[in-house]
Amino acid sequence: MNIPLSLFFLLCVGVGAARRTPLYDAFADGAKEGLQTAKRILPPLIAMLCAIRAFSASGLTDALSAFLAPALQGARIPKETLPLMLLRPLSGSASLAMLKEILHTYGPDSRIGLVASVMMGSSETVFYTCCVYLGAAGVRRSRHTIPCALLAWLAGSIAAGLLTPGW
């Protein structure tokens, strides 16, 4: 994480300096715009996070994974990774915490650990991403965005099960 990031910063400063860009002024202007963006996304973020937290606290996430376990056996998705699969589109930090727990419990090199790792990388936080982008853009009707994004998430999760060898 840190090496690509430092290279990115170096690239920004290097390219800026080479093209004689006023670095400090440009940065300050951009930062101002970034802060306004952060302000714009806060209300939708609060709404979404409340709903997501309530959903997992009520036990519905667990109930859903117990319900879906047999259906996904065909895709060779272990039932231990189902909570992660369900959390993945809902919350980035929650699914990361879940991945850490799975890796810790079953071992990172076990099949469960491998499927969970691939699953984590195969999709983004669908609802969060859509919520942030739509909120910032001021768009209310998202049309087919969320159904298509969820289809992509499902395809990625099934691929994670099928592409990981062993059973």
Binding site: F8, C12, V13, G16, T21, G30, A31, A38
Partner: peptide, 17 residues
């Protein structure tokens, strides 16, 4: 907000360059 400001700032440098 800090991250947004940081990366938008860097992005602005790149954009102007």
């Amino acid at each position: 907000a800090g991250m947004f400001a940081l990366f938008c700032g860097m992005g602005e440098i790149l954009t102007r360059a």
